[in-house]
Write a protein that binds this DNA or RNA. Structure first.
Length: 891
RNA sequence: GGGCGGCUAGCUCAGCUGGUUAGAGCACUUGCUUGACAUGCAAGAGGUCACUGGUUCGAGUCCAGUGUCGCCCACCA
């Protein structure tokens, strides 16, 4: 097959190229690891952070997929035993939130459908979004092993959840108990501390009077204690008033009783160190069931705890006339009533910290209830030690401190959720109140304590926090609790790559549960990427309307361009702004590759003769550049320095391959006297180097490189080493540099640059051919230039080109060209003595300054104190400058 | 209230364990229908590396402090 010009449009059009490539990859079966690992192969495993099945992928997902895909494609090409396992997360609370909204639009609700129909509806919704997420990953080019696709609600995960929980229970690390927890009245569930988002808000601080009990036990209208509160509606739950023990104002009151307004309950006035005398009135109402501080005080003083809010945050019976009111309506009503009674002393604006539900934004209510908890302290200690002792490394490094701080101050994890969509906690209650935890799908056969039969047991209705199943992800996906082949082969995994936002939510939990269940850290490296922000640095959000759909962007510029834009110049842990300019940069680079390929494919001599002769200098040079780039790219990819790899690849392609190598190759290909064999030799060099370049670029630009590779393979399989699919080609290794070729080309490049520079300075258009006379500085340079005369001529657009013997004085007086390799003059241009002197003067000045600086440096303490090689480098540099200066001045 | 991070060219950002004259992309200036590419080519200009002090032969890089922006954690009514 030969490549027709018409097939290759001058602009890269993603829509024409990308469709079909992904299918070819999938069909090749190369996404999945081989049935058996190659003997001695290294292992590289990434378990994909499962996106929530709640909707479309956003740019953060795209970044995740790109970073991981680069790593994975690289390792696959290296021949490592590579697995990238995809999955999706059932996201219980988030999913319910989304589905509830959809149902509301349909005029239905969770309650109207009932548990069974609701869950049916949820599965249907999940199936749709799961497919969509799969399709989206394909567009991104994510080379995930779809044969191992997992879901956090599939049977395997369900079993892992049961077994893990049973294991925790048996170890005494899971328990059920009464405690104050965060309650979202809208989601109607408990949430963890992490899902309770604190922010500073302005509310009110009211000062209200609690009258003291008189001698007759009735409220004494003349005596009262004033308390400051932000939550007057909770007075019905008060069980004490507290003051500081040293507060003189209140000392006489301690031990007496205050009477709550409206309901007349008598509560003790107690003293507690925790009260801040300077705040408010110095007296605090204590509401143990609705405030974390007060809860602690109540425990210490053995105060009763009275709940006065129901699950919808409405006041209960205990609130007397206010019962049934919403908490905020009740607040207003209570304040109004107190004012009417003359017991409201003041109201003023107050800055305070409010907790809101991460999911729905509703103000979270502390609520006293019986809950399931995991005692995480012992797990956290191990997870922290793993990182401290380097068995797991976090990138960037400074997140280690953040992780450590969290692990050190960790609270028990409230794992129960009063939701429907999720894994039900595998605990059963018998009528006598015994608890049996079972990891059998069908539940226990009998009560573990009293032996009552299964039919008398009732399963817990609470489900698990969605992060519980996510915490098992690195091994539940590989078949745990069974000792599967995959588990043995791929656990522990290599890199956990995810957003730093979920370090606590997820990474920390995987570390704790991974160590607990498997005894081995789930991954050796945690690579945390930053947020993708809009061009103004704002977080993307639907409400701001600044969300960018990755797929729309791909429609516009192609998947490779987006990948380049997201990955280039992006370092771990740092947020980045995605700008149009950056995306355009990616598009331009894709196009550049496309066009370089057009040139290479279109310049194949037809027929292609048997190559003859030795590799030309440009070919040797590009081979050496490729070798150097491959060495660097390899080190960078191994070290997870993705941005550095990207710039290595970019420079190699654009600067070395396109700007210099192809330009030199053109000269050689167009040489009139070249024989078919020579021409073939040159073209093969160009094509072979392209093949090598494509391998290096493939992880970064998978689509365009695969397409070009395919076309190259079609017309010259030797350039692809007979491998039809780039993604299955080998990463280059064992390439050696050619120092001589690099030195020679840098001589020619210096000369060409010198001429171009001069030409621009003199205002001569690049299109004008000019005569050039040069005097090389030494024999080596002379030989190099002599061999590269036609290259210099063509690249610098000089003709005729005359080489004078070294030391030819005729050149010196009027010389206008000064490079490290030659001096000379460009015919007809700038030949005035003034111009020449000016140029020479400037060059001389520059050299003298450099020499002075280095002489002082080398003469000082530097010479004795600095390492020998550093000193040597400076000395060599000095000698170089001195010889240039001699040359320039003829001294 | 604790902790973390950023401050490098007009803009967005790289600069690993301190070692030549601090880099890239975009923007800017000047020229270019150069037989792959104007989504391009060539040549340029542009930085007291936030500030102060210290360590060192040598500091953008290490230490201390200051300023400023941002983030995370935290039960003060």
């Amino acid at each position: 097959m030969s490549v027709e010009r018409s097939e290759l449009a001058p602009r890269y059009a993603a829509a024409d190229v990308e469709p079909g490539i992904y299918e070819r990859w999938v069909a090749s079966g190369a996404f999945a690891p081989a049935a058996e690992p190659r003997p001695g192969a290294r292992r590289f495993v990434i378990i994909q952070p499962p996106p929530n099945v709640t909707g479309a992928l956003h740019l953060g997902h795209a970044l995740t997929a790109y970073v991981e895909d680069i790593m994975v494609r690289y390792h696959r090409m290296r021949g490592d035993d590579t697995l990238w396992l995809p999955g999706v997360d059932h996201a219980s609370i988030a999913a319910q939130f989304v589905l509830d909204r959809i149902l509301a639009e349909e005029g239905e609700s969770r309650q109207s459908l009932g548990r069974e129909r609701y869950l049916e509806r949820m599965w249907q919704f999940m199936d749709e979004t799961r497919d969509m997420i799969g399709r989206q990953h394909r567009r991104l080019g994510a080379s995930l092993d779809w044969s191992r696709l997992r879901f956090t609600m599939d049977d395997g995960s369900a079993r892992a959840v049961r077994v893990a929980f049973k294991k925790l229970w048996d170890a005494g690390l899971a328990y059920r108990g009464e405690a104050l927890v965060n309650w979202c009245p809208r989601c109607r569930t408990t949430i963890s501390d992490l899902e309770n988002i604190h922010s500073e808000e302005t509310g009110s601080l009211w000062t209200i009077r609690y009258h003291l009990a008189g001698a007759d036990g009735a409220p004494d209208p003349a005596q009262w204690v004033s308390v400051a509160t932000t939550r007057p509606e909770t007075i019905f739950g008060d069980t004490a008033v507290a003051v500081h023990p040293d507060d003189e104002r209140y000392r006489p009151l301690v031990g007496r009783e205050a009477i709550l307004p409206f309901i007349g309950r008598r509560v003790p006035i107690i003293s507690d160190e925790g009260v801040e005398p300077g705040f408010g009135t110095g007296a605090v109402k204590i509401t143990p069931a609705h405030d974390f501080d007060d809860y602690a005080v109540a425990q210490q003083h053995a105060l009763p705890m009275i709940s006065i809010l129901d699950e919808d945050a409405r006041l209960t019976e205990g609130a007397g006339e206010f019962a049934g009111m919403d908490r905020y309506d009740a607040r207003a009503a209570v304040v109004a009533a107190l004012a009417a009674m003359g017991d409201l002393e003041s109201e003023r604006p107050h800055q305070m910290v409010i907790g809101r539900c991460d999911r729905c934004g509703t103000v979270v209510e502390p609520r006293l209830s019986v809950q399931w908890f995991v005692r995480v302290k012992p797990l956290a200690d191990r997870a922290l030690a793993s990182v401290r002792e380097g068995r797991t490394q976090i990138l960037p490094d400074h997140f280690t401190k953040v992780y450590a701080h969290w692990m050190e101050n960790i609270h028990d994890w409230a794992v129960g959720r009063q939701l429907w969509w999720g894994h039900r906690i595998p605990a059963w209650y018998c009528p006598d109140g015994h608890i049996t935890v079972s990891d059998h799908e069908a539940g226990p056969e009998a009560c573990a304590t009293c032996g009552r039969s299964a039919s008398e047991l009732r399963q817990e209705t609470d489900i698990f926090d969605t992060w519980f199943s996510s915490g098992l992800w690195p091994f539940s996906t590989l078949g745990w609790p069974d000792e599967t082949a995959d588990l043995g082969r791929f656990y522990p995994t290599s890199v956990m790559e995810t957003a730093y936002e979920i370090l606590f939510f997820w990474v920390a939990r995987m570390m704790m549960l991974g160590l607990f269940c498997m005894d081995v850290e789930p991954f050796h490296t945690v690579y945390l990427h930053g947020l993708v922000r809009d061009p103004y640095g704002r977080k993307m959000s639907k409400t701001k309307g600044n969300v960018v759909d990755p797929l729309e962007m791909i429609d516009e510029v192609g998947a490779d361009a987006l990948r380049f834009a997201l990955v280039s110049g992006n370092s771990p842990g740092v947020d980045q702004r995605l700008t149009d300019a950056k995306v355009a940069g990616g598009r331009n680079f894709t196009n550049k590759l496309w066009n370089a390929a057009r040139f290479v494919l279109g310049s194949r001599p037809d027929p292609l003769a048997e190559p003859e002769g030795e590799p030309s200098l440009p070919e040797r040079w590009i081979r050496s550049r490729l070798a150097e780039a491959v060495a660097r790219a390899t080190a960078q990819l191994d070290g997870l320095e993705l941005a550095a790899y990207v710039s290595t690849a970019y420079e190699l392609a654009w600067s070395d391959y396109c700007d210099w190598f192809l330009e030199m190759a053109k000269v050689e290909l167009r040489r009139d006297d070249a024989s078919p064999g020579k021409r073939a030799r040159i073209w093969r060099g160009v094509a072979g180097a392209l093949g090598e370049l494509l391998r290096i670029l493939h992880p970064l630009m998978p689509f365009v490189t695969e397409e070009i590779w395919g076309r190259l393979h079609a017309i010259d399989p030797s350039s692809t080493h007979g491998e039809p699919l780039l993604m299955s080609a080998a990463w280059p290794t064992g390439r050696t540099r050619d120092e001589a070729a690099e030195a020679d080309v840098s001589v020619l490049v210096a000369l060409v640059r010198g001429v171009r520079n001069l030409r621009t300075e003199a205002g001569v258009p690049a299109s004008t051919w000019l005569p050039l006379t040069i005097v090389p500085t030494d024999a080596t340079a002379r030989a190099t230039i002599e061999h590269g005369l036609d290259l210099v001529g063509a690249l610098a657009r000089v003709r005729p080109l005359e080489l004078r013997p070294a030391g030819d004085d005729a050149a010196r007086p009027e010389s206008v060209l000064s490079t490290p390799v030659a001096i000379g003059w460009l015919g007809e241009v700038g030949r005035t003595a003034a111009h020449a002197d000016e140029r020479r003067g400037a060059a001389e000045e520059h050299l003298r300054r450099g020499i002075d600086r280095l002489r002082t440096l080398v003469a000082g303490e530097f010479a004795t104190r600095a390492p020998a090689e550093v000193v040597e480098r400076e000395r060599a540099r000095l000698a170089e400058l001195e010889s240039e200066l001699r040359l320039l001045t003829g001294g």
